[in-house]
Design a protein around this nucleic acid. Structure first.
Lengths: 268, 268
DNA sequence: CGATGTGAACATTTTCACAGCA
DNA sequence: TGCTGTGAAAATGTTCACATCG
């Protein structure tokens, strides 16, 4: 995605496809991460091969979609048999760029930030937390999860020094944009934003947001809609029928989407 | 969405459009929640009207999309002028079902659950936390955020008694499915899942997931892709050019989508 | 005149359905 | 025979562009 100077993002008449090669769909990337987790679990349980049917069941998607997604990796399956778990894991890790580490900085050591910091290195390794920041004087210097908290003013310097590539914003909404700017100044390339604000960033910075309020409101919408359906409710709607994978609609895009609530979190 | 008994979700040749009326796109619903937050902020600052241009800027989408989204509410704008903030707020709240309260139960009072419980009522009111659950004997009975923690075995009974409609799962992944089943048994209609597992639920239950690992891995993918682009980097890519709203791709679907890593989360 | 509301063009994503290979 | 890989169709979602109306 060639960065667009300003104004409306990506506004070009026809765009002669520029340089972009094959490029794998955003939606597929998100699912690959899920497949990876499922595959890791299977691997730990000793499985060596899986069929698209099995894997798709476990991941909660249909098999056609799964195969299409995996096809973006290349052809690593064996017709009539299935896929080798180990191969799939490697290939997905390769595509997702998990073969190298991505240093993380957590800003805002409140409830959520604290939880994240205590994580002591994010999911499945590969995302070591290497810097913590806050404004609270009482927190500066205090080790959280083994790492001392630094002052937000030092974000640019410290991020640059330590080669942080991902910044996690877990501050109150009012501080978020300022923190974001400093992270960018520090050379951070991606931001995971838990604050309920729409961040303004240069085109080359990737932002993803997690917003509790938005999630709850979307659920609220569905509850409401269900109530409306109180009409032609033929067939089997509320009947405790078969149980199937959630298969909901979290295919979030990132950008401007849902933001929301207040901030907290974490768990493993 | 008529519930599909079992097997592959929604597998029907052509589906004669059944009963579904107009129905507003999932993607739009997520954005409406964002508009609502932005509008609330504007309202607090005394703004009484907004143009699609202003609002879209603040929300990080383009004006056409914003107008299309708002059109699902009905026609509440004034040509040549814009929209009345108050009207928009009311209409969005109506569509999102925010005119009534949705009682929330939080399961798993660890780092995340604790943070959520302390929230003392979720974002912008409308989502009061009315029950807390955990397995830890040391926690049972202890008030967290003013509410005593109950045992997970009592999930079905208590949820039913208190009329909980939304369950938040903040437990370790191993307990998630079991908790989910009990929430469903207790009559909960929607689930917000912070555990990195694909939940199996009856078709009439709405599930949304928040997965830190998946988010980080998606960001990792973009870092990696950026590295690859190290080729024909003409134009202005890394140049600190204009700053624009994030507008990323968090348009998550929910269902079977991205799940992910280990579990953590949240904010404010 | 200026901004909304929207049909139609376009783009992306999902699903189908089946050829092809182990 | 059975399952992968994929072209093509269908569905969804986004953007354009402009008629319309306050």
């Amino acid at each position: 995605m060639p960065a667009v100077p300003a104004g409306e993002p990506g506004r070009n008449g026809d765009a002669p496809e520029a340089v972009r090669a094959k490029s794998i769909p955003e939606a597929a990337v998100a699912r690959l991460a899920v497949y990876l987790r499922v595959l890791s679990g299977m691997s730990e349980q000793g499985a060596t091969t899986v069929s698209s049917e099995e894997l798709s069941q476990a991941a909660g998607v249909n098999s056609a979609k799964l195969r299409k997604d995996l096809s973006y990796l290349g052809s690593y399956g064996t017709r009539g048999v299935g896929y080798e778990v180990g191969v799939l894991v490697s290939q997905i890790e390769r595509i997702l760029g998990l073969t190298r580490q991505h240093k993380v900085a957590v800003v805002g050591i409140g409830n959520l930030g604290h939880a994240l910091a205590n994580y002591g290195g994010f999911p499945g390794r590969g995302f070591p937390v290497e810097a913590l920041f806050d404004l609270d004087a009482d927190l500066i210097g205090v080790p959280v999860g083994g790492l001392p908290v630094s002052h937000m003013d030092d974000i640019p310097r410290i991020c640059a020094e330590r080669g942080i590539s991902i910044g996690v914003i877990a501050t109150p909404p009012t501080a978020a944009q300022s923190v974001c700017d400093r992270l960018v100044a520090g050379g951070v390339q991606c931001i995971l934003n838990f604050a309920p604000v729409v961040l303004q960033v240069p085109a080359h910075i990737e932002v993803r947001k997690v917003d509790l309020a938005v999630e709850l409101q979307i659920l609220s919408f569905h509850v409401a809609r269900r109530a409306d359906d109180a009409a032609g409710n033929q067939g089997n709607s509320g009947l405790p029928g078969a149980v199937v994978p959630a298969e909901n609609g979290n295919g979030r895009r990132n950008g401007t989407g849902p933001d929301g609530g207040r901030g907290m979190v974490v768990r493993s």
